[in-house]
């Protein structure tokens, strides 16, 4: 369970990027954080991922106070999470296989195990036939799927995606979110930041609305509806 208590974040005085955000996301939930540009979606995601620290507040993930984890042990938290960005963040001089394998190499797994898991992850995103291509040889949608494969390959319990459909056309965007939904069905908690209302209308189970750094609303749909 991810619990955020009274999160405040200030980059520059006097503006607050986040103001008194409190929310709870249960294990296995599929939820969206939405709001216009500059509403604080990415900041919130970065705080959950502990890429940045909040100015005030507490974050508890599965009973663990994230802010009390010393810097040199942050990797333990991050190994439980997979993150996907709008701009993919792929290494373009490395093959698709290596881009996905990077998440496993840090765990010190054997080459054989890495190959097996990378192949499985790429098969899940239907890219196993392009395993030895370079990212620049792929379409945007395929590149995003590589980024997703990298995020899921070590089977994390939490997947965070920051505008994962921002660069994609509507059909591809639906395909990508469907993929996240499939991952969620296998038990992972999925949190997606998006401002795409169409996607939220179609997939949203739990939606948090942000505006100017404040949580202005929360909507929960019965999951059976989707």
């Amino acid at each position: 369970m991810i619990e955020l208590y009274h999160i405040w974040k200030q980059y520059q005085k006097p503006d607050w990027a986040l103001a008194d955000i409190s929310l709870t996301i249960r294990n296995g939930e599929f939820c969206f954080i939405t709001g216009p540009s500059g509403s604080g979606k990415t900041t919130l995601l970065k705080i959950i991922f502990r890429e940045i620290l909040p100015t005030e507040g507490q974050i508890i993930i599965d009973g663990l106070n994230v802010l009390k984890i010393p810097d040199h042990l942050i990797y333990r938290l991050r190994r439980q999470m997979g993150i996907v960005f709008q701009d993919f963040r792929l290494l373009y001089e490395r093959r698709v296989f290596d881009n996905v394998a990077i998440s496993l190499r840090v765990l010190g797994l054997s080459t054989k195990e890495i190959r097996r898991r990378v192949f499985n992850a790429l098969r899940q995103v239907n890219l196993h036939q392009k395993m030895w291509d370079y990212p620049y040889q792929l379409s945007y949608g395929e590149q995003q799927r590589v980024a997703i494969a990298r995020a899921i390959v070590n089977e994390p319990r939490i997947i965070l995606a920051d505008e994962p459909t921002g660069n994609l056309d509507p059909d591809l965007a639906f395909e990508i979110i469907s993929l996240f939904k499939e991952i969620n069905k296998r038990g992972a908690t999925v949190i997606i930041c998006t401002h795409d209302r169409e996607i939220i209308r179609h997939f949203g189970e739990k939606v948090f609305f942000l505006h100017k750094g404040k949580l202005i609303g929360k909507e929960v749909f019965p999951s059976s509806k989707k």
Binding site: L77, R78, R89, I102, V106
Partner: peptide, 16 residues
């Protein structure tokens, strides 16, 4: 730098 930032995101230790 890009590779380092990705390594950090996927949970690489400082020593790695």
């Amino acid at each position: 730098q890009e590779e380092i930032s990705i390594l950090r995101l996927v949970g690489a230790t400082n020593n790695f």
